[in-house]
Write a protein that binds this DNA or RNA. Structure first.
Length: 469
RNA sequence: GGCCCCUUCGUCUAGCGGUCUAGGACGUCAGCCUCUCACGCUGAAAACACGGGUUCGAGUCCCGUAGGGGUCACCA
């Protein structure tokens, strides 16, 4: 039997980081087994679902390269089938109508809480004569869950987990308005879609018991469950929207590469020996659910950044140049014409090692596309005071001719000059750097000289000498 | 509160009874490289929550304790 997994987010907000990892694990598991990875939008609660959220989730997934195989299933469109299954259950005696009002249920919970009893529906309509039904109260449909014995889940991550059936109550399948609840739709859809492995967050472990009861009530085969531990925030608390959890779009906006995020997320709760940098091919080959840990992991931005820096350095210049150009577009004092972009691309080798995110990369690359007059950082301006102008003037004189201009030739010339003048290379290189880049930090100064070319380099140095005298 | 789950360096983790004086990575610190900043390289500090068992032998198995998390909706 071929493996079918699914990622089933509810469209009530962006695709958050925990959801992204759940999607990744489902994707990897399916790929590893040569199976299928499906996408299902859990939008049975129409009030809370928005089109924007659906779009945001698809965007996030596509950016991460974790779009589903085939068409996305929208759960609310299957309400008819869900109702049909509920009717079957009603007919077979596996479910019943309950006429409790929401107020009555709330009262039940309040009292249970006050008396320190478990908060469960007491099953008051379970065996009651339908003739007792009050007028004008639309009933919900509840599953007639077993009351004795226990329900056992053989979880791929958590192992054997069992709970006494008396701990579980008769949950609602169909609301009073006839629409299906999440608990019901999930089971029907997982069955109908042929899902063989349900991999999802640990917060669903408790639901698995109820869902297992429904599967059994319908005499359907249970899928294999795998409940992966949640991702916590840096403070150890649950990563929720109110607790600083960010959507994957936020990481994209920070300049994180999708492959870096994938690698990072993979290592959160899963390991393959001492391996840290793991390609998609290796991940697919190595991934298995029994290597998934059982304890929650904290999110660590520093490690993500480190990984991102690694993938940045591995990235091709073509791709990076266009990413940087897009990021720089519209900034003041920059021209992103062919020359500017060509310079950025040529400067990438030196730029890459100095950035952890695309944003940083763009910031560092901006000077290559800058127009005169350059803007200077405070430290750079300071470096240009004093005798900097005369030093730069002297450098201008020793710099090679246009035809001989290169990283090597400019380096040789400047070094020879420094030696002759009896000064350290740094006292020449730093003012030069300030003049050329407007900053005190940059890629190697001779690389900058070479990328900028003789005309632009001279113009930038001249601009400084002129203003300083 | 009931139920369920978890617990190795600050963080992510390796470890599947002896090879653990507990390994790797991020971060931190020191040094090297060096025109700046990075990258890279070298090194250092840093952990088996606690208490009982089982066993010739426990980070590894069992039971408690403590701490943390999850879940208890006509939300998903």
């Amino acid at each position: 039997m071929s493996v079918v997994t699914r990622f089933a987010p509810s469209p009530t907000g962006f695709l958050h980081i925990g959801g992204a990892r759940t999607a990744l694990f489902n994707w990897l598991f399916a790929r590893h087994h040569g199976g299928t990875y499906l996408l299902r939008v859990e939008d049975t609660d129409r009030k809370r679902s928005t089109d924007e959220a659906v779009q945001a989730i698809h965007d996030g997934l596509d950016w991460l390269g974790l779009g589903g195989d085939g068409q996305t299933v929208y759960q609310h469109q299957r309400a008819g089938r869900h109702a049909e299954v509920a009717r079957e259950l009603l007919a077979s005696g596996g479910a019943y109508h309950c006429y409790c009002t929401p107020e009555e249920l709330q009262e039940m919970r309040d009292r249970a809480k006050a008396e320190k009893r478990p908060l469960r529906y007491d099953g008051r309509w379970r065996d009651r004569d339908p003739a007792d039904a009050p007028d004008g109260v639309p009933p919900v449909v509840r599953l007639k869950a077993p009351r004795d014995g226990e329900t056992v889940i053989e979880d791929m991550v958590q192992g054997t987990v069992r709970v006494a059936n008396e701990e579980l109550d008769d949950f609602i399948l169909l609301r009073a308005d006839g629409t299906p609840t999440y608990m019901h739709s999930v089971v029907v859809d997982d069955h109908d879609m042929g899902v063989t492995h349900v991999i999802r967050g640990d917060d669903h472990l408790n639901n698995a018991f109820r869902q297992a009861q429904l599967f059994r009530a319908m005499s359907w085969d249970l899928p294999q469950f795998g409940h992966i531990p949640l991702i916590h925030g840096p403070d150890g608390a649950k990563m929720s929207k109110r607790h600083g959890a960010l959507g994957v779009d936020a990481y994209r906006d920070m300049g994180v590469l999708p492959e870096a995020l994938r690698n990072y997320l993979l290592r959160l709760g899963w390991a393959h020996g001492d391996d840290e940098i793991i390609s998609d091919e290796q991940a697919i080959e190595w991934f298995s659910m029994d290597a998934v840990g059982r304890s929650p992991a904290r999110f660590d931005m520093k490690k993500l950044e480190n990984l991102n820096g690694h993938y940045l350095r591995e990235s091709g210049d073509e791709r990076l140049a266009s990413e940087v150009a897009a990021l720089l577009k519209g900034r003041d004092g920059l021209v992103l014409d062919d020359i500017g972009i060509a310079r950025i691309k040529a400067g990438l080798p030196g730029l890459k090692a100095r950035a952890k995110t695309l944003l940083e990369l763009a910031d560092n690359a901006a000077f290559y596309a800058a127009t005169l007059p350059l803007s200077f950082t405070e430290k750079a301006s300071k470096l240009l005071e004093g005798d900097a102008a005369s030093i730069l003037q002297a450098v201008l004189d020793v710099l090679p001719d246009t035809e001989a201009w290169s990283e090597e030739s400019t380096e040789a010339a400047v070094k020879a000059y420094a030696e002759e003048a009896g000064v350290k290379l740094g006292s020449v290189a730093q003012p030069l750097r300030a003049a050329l880049t407007g900053s005190t930090t940059s890629p190697g100064i001779f690389e900058v000289l070479a990328v900028l070319g003789p005309a632009e380099s001279r113009a930038r140095i001249n601009a400084v000498c002129g203003s300083a005298t």
